[in-house]
């Protein structure tokens, strides 16, 4: 079978250079500082810990929030673990009281660093409400619940 490496025009030296280049590219994310741009400094959130492990949340929060928004919006499921409102309650900055009012605020700090546009705050409040969310940590409902089965 013909192999790609036998293609004319791709000399040994070229391949070596390409490999080195690729390795260099792969290595970049593990370096602490890239080209003079500092990683965003995030203010410590309220509470002891996040609802999930930090790395997991950092990587998956878009899907988690999107899943939760559809569950709440369309089905009326009002769990609080991945609720945006809950994120805001813990992560609102101490200066602005908001997650998105200044460049130092939680959401904006990271998103401007990553260059990812987000439109949550076109509609959602960036500050916690005056009254706390109604459900406390789960399970929210004590034994007074009727025995209405496991139906959704």
């Amino acid at each position: 079978m013909a192999r790609v490496v036998n293609q004319p025009g791709l000399g040994k030296g070229f391949r070596l250079a390409a490999c080195l280049g690729a390795m260099a590219l792969l290595a970049i994310p593990s370096m602490p500082v890239v080209a003079g741009v500092d990683l965003p400094k995030l203010e410590h959130a309220k509470g002891d810990k996040c609802v999930d492990e930090g790395g997991y949340i950092r990587r998956h929060h878009p899907e988690l929030l999107k899943h939760h928004r559809d569950e709440t919006m369309r089905k009326g499921i009002r769990t609080t673990k991945y609720s945006l409102k809950k994120c805001v309650e813990c992560h609102a900055g101490s200066k602005t009281g908001s997650v998105a009012a200044s460049k130092e605020d939680f959401c904006i700090a990271c998103h401007s660093y990553a260059g990812v546009k987000l439109d949550c705050w076109d509609c959602h409040a960036t500050k916690p409400g005056k009254r706390p969310s109604h459900q406390a940590a789960q399970p929210a409902v004590p034994s007074l619940m009727p025995s209405n089965g496991g139906s959704q």
Partner: peptide, 15 residues
Amino acid sequence: FYGIAHSRSPEEGAS
């Protein structure tokens, strides 16, 4: 009122 008078749990959707 809150926390007690729920007719459905938060996990349960609108029916």
